[in-house]
Nucleic acid binder design. Structure first.
Lengths: 148, 148
DNA sequence: TTAAACCCTAGACCATGGTCGAGGGCAAGG
DNA sequence: CCTTGCCCTCGACCATGGTCTAGGGTTTAA
């Protein structure tokens, strides 16, 4: 008969603290309590929690998740609002993906350099270039820092 | 001759505060100062800042970025260390991408439902199912909350 | 009937990543 | 000279998202 907070925590890789925190923030208005005052999650509740994790993991703020949940609790009249909210968030996620792709390329580029057989030479050359640039601007050479 | 903190902030979409904060955290040991004690960024420094942003935007912790920068400052002897660090981070990024893809699918699924012509009916049915499940578990119905 | 293993709340505490204000110096134009 | 707009440091402050403790109740099995 329903899931305990501990079971839900394990299922979703959250801490019990986090679940209680989410509840305190109003993310779990749907969760009922049993006769002892313990939270009891139904299967439907798990689906809700899943959605919450999905939004959280894509970087949605707690307050925005709460907004979404509130819309859900309010019934079908809020479908347009949910659509707006999720569509906006979707765009955030897509933008995030794009940025991640770009940044991954940069990282891969760096790794390529490090994986060159003559990586050490390349790096040494770069350092020489930087040093020269610093010197040309009358700035201290940041390498081989002296403790003075 | 060189870029001021303000110019760098604008170029990278950071606040001046953030740049000073990064410096304080040891992320910018390469940045020199001019005769007045002002930070002066060279082109090479900008490339470094770019890398820092790239790592930050992919979720690397400040302390890990500092580790990477420290390796870079230490010279070619640390290439293996940098490779280890970036490779580990690369895996994080790829994992992040995977999770993002999966979560985006969930979001799209929800949006699909909301975009159905009979979305309202679907939602209403789901609510009825949830209500029934709550009732079966002797839990309060979370919908239409009364203020008592 | 007691110990172990759960559950609860309230509120303190914490880590991260900034953000800002106070107090003060530098540089350029009017 | 003096105002304006930069720059500096130091340290306080803040928002977010937890994490944990204290104090206390419940359930179950020995």
């Amino acid at each position: 008969m329903g899931y305990s907070i501990k079971e839900v925590a394990e299922k979703f890789g959250l801490s019990i603290y986090t679940i209680r925190y989410y509840d305190k923030q109003g993310l779990l208005p749907f969760v009922g309590r049993n006769a002892s005052g313990y939270r009891e999650f139904t299967e439907s509740d798990l689906r809700f929690v899943h959605t919450i994790c999905c939004l959280k993991d894509t970087g949605m703020k707690i307050s925005d998740i709460k907004q979404y949940i509130d819309y859900c609790m309010a019934g079908p009249a809020t479908i347009a609002d949910r659509k707006r909210l999720l569509t906006a968030h979707r765009q955030q996620v897509v933008a995030q993906q794009k940025k991640l792709r770009e940044n991954l390329q940069e990282i891969d580029y760096k790794l390529d350099v490090y994986n060159q057989p003559n990586a050490s030479d390349i790096i040494t050359q770069q350092r020489q270039y930087v040093s020269q640039e610093k010197q040309a601007n009358h700035l201290p050479n940041p390498f081989q820092k002296s403790n003075s």
